[in-house]
Nucleic acid binder design. Structure first.
Length: 474
RNA sequence: GGCGCGGUACCCAAGCGGCAAGGGAGCGGUCUGCAAAACCGCGAUGCGGCGGUUCGAAUCCGCCCCGCGCCUCCA
């Protein structure tokens, strides 16, 4: 079955065929570093991390580029608020601080780093060239406060968002600049006000508008036409619409981007989690209570385009579910050492079953990266393994095959599964040995006392026909 | 006003024309010195409502109800 991807440009699932297969160009709209990363951001970047991982798993070579908008009104504002100054050095400090924080928190979520992270401030000369080009071609005009893109000059304006210029209530909530030729015209170059960071340009000191950055950065790294451009649903309009307009206007190459992909929001009580509403949870806060991999599982359990409601109860459920996977791996590790060598037949049966599961797993992911269905297959695999373990005759190689396959699926989704045992001290092993001896002597009082003692440290003992084993209660 | 998304069991969530995945919670059982875990079994004749198309509909079409998003910086 071919890999299908939902394309917002055509509003349907399409077979994925990269322009230069097996190479894939993937551009993701990155952060504006003026505050802590919250769960909504995590969902976005995790979505594209999963897409990237699955493409790589499927044999593609992905060139993943994600920008950093390190100059912007909000950063300037933050810098002022904090230091009473909007000077360039301070603005840079703020951007760098939150960029660092972003990487910290995303690394823990096991989001792979992109191949490049271009910063807006590093490419200002390129942006100026672009704007000059647009002015030359008659797509842009100058006003007192900046240079604007004229949407009426671009025929296809609205093709991504499906909007018609007439239908939009421009100015409904934001004041219309009466000097603009069309209220939808957007700024390419913003002239600097007193005390703002600025760069020289043919239009005087100023800074680039938001939309132009992504066009310049993405084409610089991925070429004038590339495969996938992604971001949160909230970027679809106007950001991505404007990017298409300015890029296709300048290069004349259509389509600029083959597949447009947008992830859905994280909601709280049916409302979008957002900075402006102030109803957001930062990853740092969430990590205080939940392992990052629990958060990851939680995010993976809903298809990336559907809304995802955040709640503590849901996170708790994900935690229980995650424990189940971890425990299965720990059980396998325990048994692989204890169990006898292999007989050929058994391994084959196991392998056949695992191959069927792999088929299902791929089918799920081939269908527009359906990680929720793929997680379902992971639990079917867990179920299969637990049944397998129960059998009287089990052998080393089949168990190893079980373990490899489970970890393979988890790996594709970026779920790290660690046997927590490796981290724990010998003291526990000693106590367990003592308890085992006590049980042999029918000294159950002592045995129970030891179990109780370990439980106080969050260690749970489980007796099995192969001996006692233990795990940490998370 | 324009454009768009969603409503599937107690909760979450896949499925999008052919027997309703999976997780969590619950209940019953097997195993166990007692446990824990695991395993087995139970759990929607039903997919917001009403019509229609079809041999067959959660799935397609129409109308309606409810919730949400975008049109403004936002992932």
């Amino acid at each position: 079955m071919p890999l299908k991807i939902y394309n917002d440009l055509t509003r349907q699932k399409e077979e994925f065929q990269p322009i230069n297969s097996p190479r894939v160009g993937l551009y993701v709209c990155g952060i504006t570093p003026y505050d802590e990363t919250h769960l909504g951001h995590a969902r976005a970047y995790l979505t594209f991390d999963v897409i990237r991982r699955y493409l790589e798993y499927s044999g593609f070579y992905v060139n993943h580029v994600q920008n950093i908008t390190d100059i912007d009104d909000k950063i300037i504002q933050k810098s002022r608020l904090r230091q009473g100054s909007g000077g360039q050095a301070k603005v840079k400090e703020v951007a760098e601080e939150y960029t660092r924080s972003y990487f910290e928190v995303m690394d823990r979520l096991n989001v792979k780093r992109a191949g490049d992270y271009p910063k807006a401030t590093d490419l200002i000369p390129d942006m100026i060239k672009w704007i000059e080009g647009l002015v030359d071609k008659g797509f842009a005009y100058s006003l007192e406060d900046g240079v604007y893109f004229e949407v009426d000059k671009f025929k296809d304006y609205g093709k991504l968002s499906g909007r018609k210029k007439e239908g939009m209530e421009a100015g409904a909530r934001v004041e219309v600049d009466i000097n603009k030729r069309n209220p939808l015209d957007f700024v390419l170059w913003k002239k600097a006000k007193e005390g703002e960071p600025s760069w020289d340009s043919p239009w005087g000191k100023g800074r680039p508008g938001w939309h132009i950055e992504c066009s310049v950065m993405s084409t610089k790294y991925l070429g004038e036409q590339f495969d996938i451009h992604g971001g949160g649903l909230d970027l679809l309009f106007p950001h991505h619409e404007n990017e298409i307009a300015q890029t296709e206007a300048l290069t004349g190459k259509v389509p600029w981007v083959k597949y447009w992909v947008h992830n859905g929001f994280v909601n709280i009580n049916q409302q979008k989690m957002s900075k402006s509403l102030g109803n957001f949870f930062t990853l740092k806060e969430i990590y205080e209570q939940y392992d990052p991999m629990v958060v990851r599982l939680f995010l993976l359990s809903t298809h990336y385009r559907s809304p995802l409601n955040f709640s503590d109860a849901q996170l708790k459920e994900s935690q229980a579910a995650y424990q189940k996977i971890v425990k299965t791996i720990e059980d396998l590790d325990f048994l692989i050492i204890k169990v006898p060598e292999t007989e050929e037949v058994e391994v084959k049966e196991t392998r056949d079953e695992l191959a069927d599961l792999e088929e299902k797993f791929k089918m799920a992911m081939d269908d527009d990266f359906n990680s929720a269905a793929a997680v379902g297959v992971i639990f079917e695999t867990v179920h299969f393994i637990n049944e397998h373990i129960k059998e009287k005759k089990i052998d080393r190689d089949s168990l190893q095959a079980d373990k490899d396959k489970l970890l393979e699926f988890c790996g594709v989704l970026g779920l790290k599964i660690e046997n927590r045992k490796s981290k724990i001290e010998n003291r526990i092993e000693d106590l367990i040995a003592e308890r085992e001896a006590a049980r042999k002597n029918k000294d159950f009082k002592r045995a129970d006392a030891i179990r109780k003692e370990l439980l106080a440290d969050g260690i749970i003992i489980e007796d099995t026909p192969y001996g006692a084993k233990w795990r940490k209660n998370a």
